[in-house]
Design a protein around this nucleic acid. Structure first.
Length: 283
DNA sequence: AGTGTATCCTGCAGGC
DNA sequence: TGCCTGCAGGATACAC
């Protein structure tokens, strides 16, 4: 599932084939993945040159020559697949939107489950939209102190807070779970209850995990692929995510799977002690 | 402000 | 073999 490292890998891979190219036309094959009116979406993109291919949080962002943006939220299964011809590339199994590029090439937005969304934002809309997202965890300004401030204002479980894009941008379930394992913090710990030492460890582990995953080209669990078709190599380096029943790489205790907030978390019962004792049954 | 639940959608795994 | 059921989950809406 595309999180920050996957979006970063996609943006980097795409920059080579897309930056400087002009979008000739747009074909919307699946209306529901385009935010707002598809006629306006087409109009806004047609004959515009892509000046920058970047990323904000988990979103791939195309900056157009009028300073407007195409924001691609990849959802669960969204992919951006470049192709040599005007139709979708052979690798695109579920094309939803096609950008026809100058020189005959194309870029397909492909999404099996169609949880992803494409939206066009004017320069002003983009500024407002981006402001609603939290800080970039790999930016210079994301300091330990900044994280401490974010954590201190919330009593929600730290894993839920890490997933909230309005507070920190780009972290999804995989990297939240990994960072918490490295930081020796139970995913359910109330954010504000994490002490200074825990905050420092979490800050360090978040950035380390995200950076290492970017270097590995992301994590492929199922269908994530970089634009060149390669799988992300971070999967085999996952310490906790998806390893329920397997030995903790620190202490050999069996990794546990817990569910809250509607999604799975994985943690070591010994290294990441639960914040509150289980309530006694009965009475 | 916080938590929980349903919704979107389809592929895949497990049960029989 | 094949059908059925349930599960996966990022963002969002909504109830409490």
């Amino acid at each position: 599932m595309p999180e920050l490292p996957e979006a970063e890998t996609i943006a980097r891979g795409l920059a080579g084939v897309l930056a400087g190219k002009t979008i000739r036309d747009v074909t919307v094959l699946r209306e529901d993945v385009v935010h707002g009116s598809q006629a306006r979406f087409r109009e806004a993109l047609a004959d515009r040159r892509v000046s920058v291919v970047g990323r904000r949080g988990k979103n791939v962002v195309l900056t157009l020559d009028d300073a407007s943006r195409v924001v691609v939220n990849l959802g669960m299964t969204g992919r951006l697949v470049p192709g040599p011809g005007s139709g979708p590339a052979p690798g695109s199994t579920h094309p939803a939107v096609l950008l026809h590029l100058e020189g005959g090439g194309s870029l397909a937005y492909d999404d099996v489950r169609r949880f992803g969304r494409l939206r066009h934002l004017s320069a002003a809309e983009w500024t407002r939209w981006s402001r609603r997202l939290g800080p970039e965890p790999l930016s210079r300004s994301f300091t330990g102190r900044r994280l401490a401030g974010i954590l201190s204002r919330s009593r929600s479980p730290v894993r839920s807070l890490l997933l909230d894009q309005r507070r920190i941008a780009g972290v999804g379930n995989i990297y939240a779970v990994e960072a918490l394992w490295f930081a020796l913090i139970h995913p359910r710990t109330p954010a504000a209850a994490i002490g200074a030492g825990g905050v420092t460890r979490l800050h360090r582990s978040l950035r380390r995990v995200l950076r290492a995953a970017v270097q590995a080209g992301g994590t492929t669990l199922r269908n994530y692929r970089a634009p060149d078709g390669n799988e992300g190599r971070f999967r085999r380096r996952l310490a906790a995510y998806g390893r329920a029943g397997g030995p903790c790489l620190r202490c050999r205790a069996a990794i546990e799977r817990i569910v809250f907030g509607g999604r799975s978390a994985f943690c070591c019962p010994r290294c990441q002690p639960a914040p509150v004792p289980l309530p006694a049954e009965g009475q």
